[in-house]
């Protein structure tokens, strides 16, 4: 597939927003349970707004994906069948929820944790929706796996914790350690999960073949002409146009930038108590995760491509 940057930004930004919320909420829960010194309400309030901002930017990015953004309001109509419609519902709910959770630290909306429970539900639902948008297309074999959900969840959460670490390092240092340690753990787990999915995808055998595409048996079935030469929607939307080598560069870039470097920065930053290193971590990680998401989208090999192999 050809990754659309609108989608890349949409999913990475809302993932980070969701993760940040989870970080804030878990810190508050842990604080309430007395396991850590809780972050202050100002921090939670501002942090929530930051999470809402990230998700809002994601929402904004999504508009660039639409051919007819002015009709975006229609896009929730088919929530009964469409994960995309569900996402369209879940995302504003999440944004509203996280905003309410933040405000609850300022205004008497009720116990913040209770208000946040709603955001938590929206957040988890949103993870499922976003993941399922990809995982539900059964013939996009690279995507059609529970690993897709796991990755969206783990990567989003990890990046949110990394962001939380940076925010805390700057504004609420006493929780930076909590966030940072979890950020490292989540990044490791996310990397593991992502690695498993990479390994899985590398071993995938496409179920569709030129033979099944046209229904003709024979050892050698090869397209000679796709029927036109100047390209079409089908040659643009479903091919990333990057060489194998290029793909591999992107893959290593995201492994390094999205996972390894942030882990190192987090570890070093926590050890050295360096705000700079801890702030650098999410910045680097975000760049890496943009690459990751690009790769995720690109790597999916659409069976329609069997029909668009060659011109003559």
């Amino acid at each position: 597939m050809r990754p659309a940057f609108s989608v890349v930004f949409l999913t990475t930004l809302i993932g980070a927003g969701q993760g940040l919320f989870l970080a804030l909420y878990s810190a508050e829960v842990m604080g309430a349970l007395g396991r850590i010194a809780p972050p202050g309400p100002r921090f939670l309030h501002a942090g929530s707004w930051f999470a809402a901002l990230l998700a809002g930017l994601g929402l904004l990015a999504s508009f660039f994906h639409l051919g007819r953004p002015e009709r975006a309001w229609r896009s929730a109509a088919r929530w009964r069948t469409s994960w995309l419609a569900r996402e369209v519902i879940a995302l504003p709910l999440f944004i509203a929820g996280v905003a309410a959770y933040g405000l609850a630290h300022r205004l008497p909306l009720g116990p913040p944790l209770a208000v946040g429970a709603f955001a938590l539900a929206a957040c988890l639902a949103l993870f499922v929706c976003t993941g399922m948008i990809y995982a539900c297309i059964r013939f996009l074999q690279e995507w059609a796996s529970p690993l897709t959900l796991a990755n969206f969840f783990l990567i989003g959460t990890a990046s949110g914790f990394t962001v939380a670490t940076a925010l805390a390092a700057a504004f609420e240092p006493h929780v930076a350690g909590f966030f940072g340690r979890w950020a490292i753990v989540l990044t490791v787990v996310a990397l593991a999960s992502r690695a498993i999915s990479l390994a899985r995808n590398a071993r995938l055998r496409p179920r569709s073949t030129p033979q099944s595409a046209i229904g003709v048996e024979g050892a050698r079935v090869e397209q000679k002409s796709m029927g036109f030469l100047g390209g079409s929607f089908n040659t643009r939307e479903f091919f990333h146009g990057v060489s194998r080598g290029g793909l591999s560069v992107v893959k290593w870039a995201f492994i390094v930038l999205g996972f390894l470097v942030p882990m190192a920065l987090l570890a070093a930053g926590l050890a050295a108590g360096s705000v700079a290193l801890l702030v650098a971590a999410p910045v680097v990680q975000y760049a890496g995760l943009v690459a990751e998401r690009w790769f995720f989208l690109a790597q999916s090999n659409h069976p329609q491509n069997l029909y668009y192999q060659r011109t003559a």
């Binding site: 046209i214 003709v216 050698r220 079935v221 090869e222 000679k224």
Partner: peptide, 8 residues
């Protein structure tokens, strides 16, 4: 669209 394939 009309496409062309070769078999064999």
């Amino acid at each position: 669209r009309v496409q062309t394939f070769e078999v064999g």
